[in-house]
């Protein structure tokens, strides 16, 4: 059911409206939020795919499935930004994800934040869908603050192998994710802003389905076991390496996000815009998984071109003889 949960009048017509979709009435609710930033389109696409799927179950078009729990989605939080094709609302240039928990009587961003928080705070599970920051592309992964048992299970059921443990930051208290910390909640990040990657979204869609089945929100009458077991790995923040430029120019990448890179492997090179000369080669400092890659080619000095998740070796691996 599509429900309007907030209307903010606009003096020139075209009111700003905030919607939520709900399916099912019993059980602990799962909330899925997307469109906090107006240019994070993978989340919007994924939520719309999910809506189509859950609607068709309710209409009896998927006889193998029954919805046994409760799901609510918030496909477009920052409608003003989506409408203007930008990350932030052009009205005030404020970052929507710095407005939580919001204020029902406040300005537009605060009123939206408050409405989202009021509708999600009693959920049992929370998933926030996002893309990489501007100019970057993310391989599909989960971000979390405290990977406790429940969250670890959630990651596994979502069938996402890579989990990044986030450092506590000076802005976190005003993020939506921080407000959801009393429930099992994760951020799922994939792709780059302003684009839709259907393949990545399909993988994540299957992961969300698997999660809903594992938690009893969705019943699959075929009793099919998952095709593969996901081995989730949690990377601590000190296992992340940011590979930066020492020059400025045009960055030409030679690798793909999500690939495992070897020390010394070429990530790409920076060329001078005017002369075309190669200024530097960006290489992998340590073996690891390429989780974030620069997408926008124009680069300044000292900018990260890649974030690599490294695997800390156990002390046994340093022994001169094989460990048993």
């Amino acid at each position: 059911m599509k429900e309007k949960i907030l209307t903010l009048p606009n003096p020139f017509g075209g009111d700003l409206e905030l919607y939520k979709n709900t399916w099912g009435k019993s059980g602990e609710p799962l909330s899925i939020v997307s469109g906090l930033q107006g240019d994070h389109l993978n989340g919007l696409f994924l939520n719309s795919h999910l809506t189509q799927f859950l609607d068709s179950i309710m209409e009896g078009l998927h006889p193998h499935y029954t919805l046994t729990g409760q799901v609510q989605t918030f496909p477009v939080v920052n409608a003003n930004a989506v409408r203007s094709g930008s990350r932030l609302s052009p009205l005030d240039g404020m970052d929507m994800d710095l407005a939580f928990p919001g204020n029902p009587d406040g300005e537009t961003a605060e009123a939206i934040a408050s409405t989202i928080w009021q509708h999600t705070k009693d959920s049992f599970w929370g998933i926030i869908l996002q893309s990489a920051p501007p100019h970057y592309e993310d391989a599909p992964h989960i971000q979390t603050y405290k990977p406790d048992g429940r969250t670890k299970k959630m990651c596994k059921d979502l069938q996402i192998e890579t989990v990044r443990r986030q450092k506590e930051s000076s802005t976190q208290k005003v993020n939506l994710f921080h407000q959801l910390q009393d429930m099992s909640s994760v951020i799922v990040s994939t792709g780059s802003p302003r684009t839709i990657n259907p393949q990545q979204c399909e993988t994540l869609f299957q992961g969300i389905l698997n999660f809903m089945k594992a938690e009893g929100i969705l019943k699959d009458h075929r009793n099919k076991k998952p095709k593969h077991k996901t081995n989730t790995r949690i990377y601590q923040s000190d296992e992340e390496i940011s590979v930066r430029t020492t020059t400025a120019g045009m960055f030409l990448k030679e690798v793909k996000v999500g690939s495992h890179l070897k020390q010394g492997q070429k990530i790409g090179e920076v060329r001078d815009i005017y002369s075309g000369k190669r200024l530097e080669e960006i290489t992998v400092p340590e073996d690891g998984l390429l989780i974030t890659l620069r997408q926008y080619p124009i680069v300044y000095e000292k900018e990260p071109m890649a974030i690599i998740l490294t695997t800390k070796k156990s002390w046994r691996e340093y022994l001169p003889w094989p460990a048993h």
Partner: peptide, 11 residues
């Protein structure tokens, strides 16, 4: 809004 600990790496 970029001062203080724990910010993601960026220029």
């Amino acid at each position: 809004r970029t001062f203080g600990p724990g910010q993601s790496p960026s220029l």
